[in-house]
């Protein structure tokens, strides 16, 4: 026999709160940003699908900028150190952030990575997010700017399918344009889609194979 007592309406409290569920991460992101600013370091966060060319693009940027600036790279990767190994070959500090099963980097993990490098020797940190076009959007890391990397090999509807990621970005790179013809994908259409979502965003078509657009990306990152 179960006895049930139900509250009458006057016994029910209905209270208003404004408790942000993303605040814990947002607060750590602000702390990361303050630490970076204090050391005069600019961090740039790269987001994009698996295989869009984030690691290769970051590698090219490191090549172009490492002689002028103190550069470090944080590689987010679920389990492997494959990407970190590729960049470490260039002789810059690399921290691999293994999220194990996590689908995005968060400000806490980036804060831990910041404690692993000598901040006094750095001016620029590239953060490679996990290959995922949805989850990282809600988790700021403390970077100065977020870059979205899409490639023509992801097909013509890439931007339309993942609109949220672009809303918070400062720069969009359309990569692998040397394959646009073979893929029958129009770089102009992808650019127009990005501008439908965010009319003032800078879009740079690139090819890490031919080098097209890479100087423009490096210049945009320096001014971000």
């Amino acid at each position: 026999m179960i006895q049930i007592i139900e509250a009458v309406p006057e016994e029910i409290y209905d209270i208003e709160l404004e408790h942000s569920l993303l605040e814990a991460n947002a607060r750590l992101a602000r702390e990361n940003r303050a630490l970076l600013d204090q050391h005069g370091i600019k961090a740039i966060d790269f987001m994009g699908a698996i295989g869009s060319g984030k690691t290769t693009l970051i590698g090219r940027m490191v090549e172009k900028l490492k002689d002028r600036l103190g550069v470090a790279v944080f590689n987010g990767d679920a389990t492997t150190s494959n990407d970190a190994d590729l960049i470490a070959g260039q002789g810059v500090p690399v921290v691999q952030i293994a999220t194990v099963n996590g689908c995005h980097l968060d400000a806490n993990l980036v804060g831990k990575a910041l404690r692993k490098v000598d901040l006094d020797k750095l001016e620029l940190i590239f953060i490679e997010n996990i290959g995922n076009l949805i989850c990282p959007a809600e988790f700021p890391l403390g970077s100065r700017a977020r870059v979205v990397v899409v490639s023509v090999t992801e097909g013509p509807y890439m931007v339309r399918k993942h609109p949220h990621m672009f809303l918070g970005a400062a720069l969009v790179v359309i990569n692998k344009i040397d394959l646009a013809g073979a893929m029958n994908v129009s770089v102009e259409d992808l650019t127009r889609d990005v501008h439908t979502l965010k009319p003032d965003i800078k879009v740079i078509p690139t090819s890490c194979k031919t080098g097209a657009g890479l100087d423009e990306v490096a210049a945009a990152l320096l001014h971000a």
């Binding site: 029910i12 409290y13 209270i15 709160l17 404004e18 408790h19 942000s20 569920l21 809303l167 965010k198």
Partner: peptide, 18 residues
């Protein structure tokens, strides 16, 4: 380009309890 003023919320607005 327009700036967002609302729509990024993700919060607990209230709790109803006894």
């Amino acid at each position: 380009a327009a700036e967002p003023t609302q729509g990024h919320e993700c919060l607990i607005k209230g709790i109803r309890y006894v």
